[in-house]
Design a protein around this nucleic acid. Structure first.
Lengths: 299, 299
DNA sequence: GAATGCCGTTCGACAATGTCGTACGCCGGT
DNA sequence: ACCGGCGTACGACATTGTCGAACGGCATTC
């Protein structure tokens, strides 16, 4: 029997279970006490209840709707009673809320507030605030700053295009890394190769879903110092991005602009699918300016 | 000794402890197993470790800087080892990150992303997106939508003023309820009296810090259906807000505009400290429109 | 209208689990 | 060189979280 979770027979049956089996494959550094089968000595392992609570929160966040106890329980492969206990606690601390009529659960306001404080701590975002505004003004396009998070691009800042059109705020959203300029810059400059070959979903005909070709593109991105995405995520939309580095020279994020292909690309022949040079310059200058703020050696 | 936490002698010593003593005063419905002293039978209480994890996250969110294990441990009145175990778990699920050099902890990206999904679930915000844009266009001022959360105003949406000035995004921020139009609307229409007399801090000379006078103001706000704040939080800044109600008629949020006193108020005599009538109309119309979207009976 | 199925909820016993205290190695200040 | 403080590791104890079964309400079905 498993040294830690011998009791949770129900959990180990389901592959998506949040029993001890779940994270051992997620964390490469953890001991594989599950493969071995039984009697691992005793490791200072993660706390079971907290991991399960986190899994519940993730589930509630992914499904953009309210979920019931039974739904969560089956999804996690846990007994209802257990899930209910965790939910009660999460509700108690304000991380989830319960609809009074349906009895279903959803994310809570406290979690939202705590999560948004991440932006205050995030040095990248703090330092980038000024420069992103000026980039938006110069380029007249919307500006986004992103960071690599589990193989995807986490948007930590978003400046709307300076016209009066209504735009949705994307802060906190996750973008696909292989189909956005931000993502390509981040992937290309990331020390550990986070490129997930299986995750190369196609959004448009222009999306690059071939791992090999993508790696070539990333090499080029790394060499020239900026990346573009021409209708690879959304038809008619183009984005350009450049890396932001910190004092040690490692890429901690990326800044980029995005907008309609008519405005961002040239008008004739081959240029019709190439971002305009002055916009690329703006982006790269902004990225360099922020990097300098973060202490990177100007190069 | 305390029935549940008898072992945690260290926790009970500190007033801010996260032992069982902490939440019993927060949750009015919970049994006061602490006052009684000892041997409460056994209640389906909140899960200890999760509560503690939440407390750690709150602490990390409040102090806008990285914190160490010892710092957190003393603040919570818990032994270092315990705090470290929880932190390791939180780090494992991505809710906190650890600086590789200093060893201190800060909030993690995963928590931020999960928290921001709250906005997708929040029906108030979803329905209010369109109307807030048009309110910003009509009033030419920045628009905020807020909800009452633990006696403060949680900003769930923010539309920048439609000029090109650089503004900070306030989504996720908490505003004082007694010194903002949004807050006053929410307090005035809240079923349970969340007004905290002790929390009436003064920001400017105009801030109302007298509970009695504030209650009178709230009664007036309730009667006339909108609230204003004239330099009560920030000198020179004025805000106007109106309540958003759902189908049952309860106030679920508030929408309002804010801007410099020169633009929002009249120019002469008594009007100099009264919001202009057309702006008030815009705000109230927007609030009514959203309420209608939420299913409120048009009145 | 009764029966059925599903849901959220409650409860109590078991033992696995989280907690606690002590001890280690390391760094920076004195 | 000493000391204090930090983040970290480990092991024993019994408290605590987990589990499964049972309860009552609600909507749908026959």
């Amino acid at each position: 029997m498993d040294g830690r979770n011998g009791r949770a027979a129900g959990a180990d049956r389901t592959p998506e279970g949040v029993g001890r089996a779940a994270w051992s494959k997620v964390d490469p550094a953890s001991f594989d006490n599950v493969e071995r089968g039984c009697t691992v000595i005793r490791m200072p392992g993660p706390i079971q209840s907290i991991e399960r609570a986190a899994a519940i929160l993730r589930l509630l966040a992914s499904g953009a709707r309210k979920m019931g106890v039974a739904e969560l329980a089956t999804a996690l492969g846990l007994p209802k009673g257990t899930v209910r206990g965790i939910l009660r606690t999460l509700q108690h601390v304000g991380f989830v809320e319960q609809s009074q009529d349906t009895g279903k659960y959803q994310l809570g306001a406290a979690l939202f507030h705590i999560g948004s404080s991440y932006l205050d701590v995030n040095e990248l975002r703090t330092r980038a605030l000024n420069w992103s505004d000026s980039l938006a003004a110069r380029s007249k396009e919307s500006v986004r700053i992103g960071t690599l998070h589990e193989g995807q691009v986490l948007v930590v800042h978003h400046v709307f295009r300076p016209d009066n059109s209504s735009q949705v705020l994307e802060v906190g959203a996750l973008l696909p890394a292989h189909a956005s300029a931000l993502g390509k810059v981040l992937l290309a400059n990331d020390p550990l190769d986070q490129l997930d070959d299986a995750g190369l979903v196609g959004f448009t005909p222009a999306t690059c879903t071939d791992p090999e070709r993508l790696r070539e593109m990333l090499a080029e991105v790394r060499a020239r110092g900026w990346a573009s995405d021409v209708e690879e995520m959304v038809e008619g939309e183009v984005s350009v991005a450049a890396p932001i580095r910190d004092r040690r020279g490692v890429t901690v994020g990326a800044i980029g602009i995005s907008g309609p292909i008519e405005r961002l690309c040239g008008m004739t022949g081959e240029d019709a699918r190439t971002p305009r040079v002055e916009l690329v310059s703006y982006v790269r200058e902004a990225a360099r300016a922020i990097s300098r703020d973060l202490g990177a050696i100007p190069w």
